[in-house]
Amino acid sequence: MIGGADSSQPRSAALIDPKALMGIRDLELRARVVVEGFWNGLHRSPYHGFSVEFTEYRQYTPGDDPRYVDWRVFARSDRYCIKKFQDETNLRCHLLFDQSRSMSYGSTGYSKAQYAATLAATLAYFLHGQGDATGLLSFDEAVREYLPARHRAGHLRQLMLALEKPAGGRSTNLTDPIGRIASLVRKRGLMACISDFLAPLDRLESGLLALTACGHEVTVFQVLDPAELTLNFEQASLFEDMESARRVYIDPAPARSEYVSRIEAHCAAVRSICEKLGIGHHRVSTAQPLELALFEFLKERMRRGKWSLSGARNRP
């Protein structure tokens, strides 16, 4: 249960170093470590009284659909109780996962793609643990793989396998995959887009607008390497674009300030688009512990009131 001001920020000592985390080969285990650690920061015992089979009853009030009255309870207790179905309450979350080649860059010993996959797996694990249906759409310049949002045994494993596939695409095209998922997913739900957004933004706004217009709640995780943010190279060298293979001779020292201003302007542009559309934007550095990203996510959801952690709160 999240409660108290002191518990709103996880203690840094409890956070797991991403470098150590990435040493774990299995993605699902990585996600579990993060989520359990996260819960560990929130609860004494995350396992106590928690059940994914939990069903809520509430008092019938006039206006409720009589179809949902639990007649067995009425027969036993002579009270009208409405059975609240699990489906009705659970979230449908789709993870939009960028697998373009630029995501395979990493200066910290692991790539952005690995970090992003762990983040996606963490979210999926966390949501699955709450009984939410989780789907996946991986993309580069086109949609690579699509797993519809489900909550059933083995689905999480399937999702983990899809996330573990290496980044194979060439370029990043945000617009088409977003438009594609808008047409694929009819039911409203949460769309968590995990990408570096290192692509022209000219049509990003229209794509995101298509999602929000469909009633989806959209959250954006912009995963960036620390080197991408600071250009912390020493030697001058030929910089080769991983997507276009274009080579540019760069002397980092004189170019750094201009680069930083450009990337910050780009990130600001992404953020402004998101704010304009009411989308949560999280810029995540791969040097940052994953729990922080998860925490940011939850905090934003709580702020918006979309997610109440009701299960956790009602837990004994």
């Binding site: 860059y105 290192l198 250009l231 080769e240 674009d241 002397d251 680069y259």
Partner: peptide
Amino acid sequence: RTTRERTSFSSVMFLPPSLPR
């Protein structure tokens, strides 16, 4: 004079080309 070092980078779209030193 011109370096032969090569560095792969995610995207050079924000990198300003510079003259060799």
